[in-house]
Amino acid sequence: MTSATVDSGRPAGNRRPARSAVSGHPLTRVSGLGLGVAMLWFSLLVLIPLAAVIAVAGSEGWSGFWEAITAEQTLASIELTVFTSIGVTLVNVVMGTLIAWVLVRDRFFGKRVLEVLVDIPFALPTIVAGLVLLSLYGPNSPLGIDIANTRTAVFVAFLFVTLPFIVRTVQPVLAEIDQDVEEAAASLGASRFTIFWKVILPSLTPAITAGAALSFARGVSEYGSLVLLSGNLPMRTEVTSVRIFSSIENDHLENAAAVATVLLVISFAVIVILDVIQRRTVRRG
């Protein structure tokens, strides 16, 4: 099977190749100053605030932290968020790959429209995304489907906001695959299904995994699109971000920080996974 693997020659998606990590000039005085200023800004904006979240979460000790994240309502929200994100990511693995396939290999009138449609969830404000879905799947649905305030609404909202991730990581890799290999497989009698399964899919796997990780992370952290759509019913449709938000509103910052830490751990895990995939792909390519 490995012999049939087509090297994509490109790292997954448009992510930064790790090869730049080893080359380059030593810092000059100007670039060193630039790096210093940039790092100061990055620390003040991102690193110190995120460290504050973890520090405040730990300020009540391990037992306080544990109590905060295992409260019944919080656990229910984490469970809903994580399982819905996993389900949505599985759908995205299939649909994202199919959409990327159509965008790269198929040719028909109006394909450019599909390109734009795929990117819309990325650029649309999340609160507008919620309203958009509500107009088709809410109380005044022209289809007569009303999923507002249900767990299905959470699922659909996640599907919407995570749509571009797998498509956009798979698409460039698929476009670079050398079709001669498929041609060779076809001439040797492989069916279309076999070609896809044995020749194309293995070279897409890193890109699909990277996209899946991004899509999962985005689902877990989603907030805006659910505000209007899911009703935020405790124990039923309340996701983790909404839970954190209500803790902030009620001035339980320690609680909020503890639950936020759980989300941060998930984000960091995803970033580590992406980094590993990226380096492995570059090494092979």
């Binding site: 605030p49 995120l50 504050a52 979240v53 999340t126 991004l214 992370a217 985005r218 877990v220 952290s221 989603e222 907030y223 805006g224 983790t240 971000s241 909404v242 954190i244 938000f245 902030i248 910052l253 909020a256 920080a257 936020a260 989300l263 941060l264 984000s267 995803v270 970033i271």
Partner: peptide, 10 residues
């Protein structure tokens, strides 16, 4: 990949 709510909180 950080939730906007966590950004605000931080």
């Amino acid at each position: 990949s950080v939730s906007p709510v966590v950004v605000g909180l931080s």
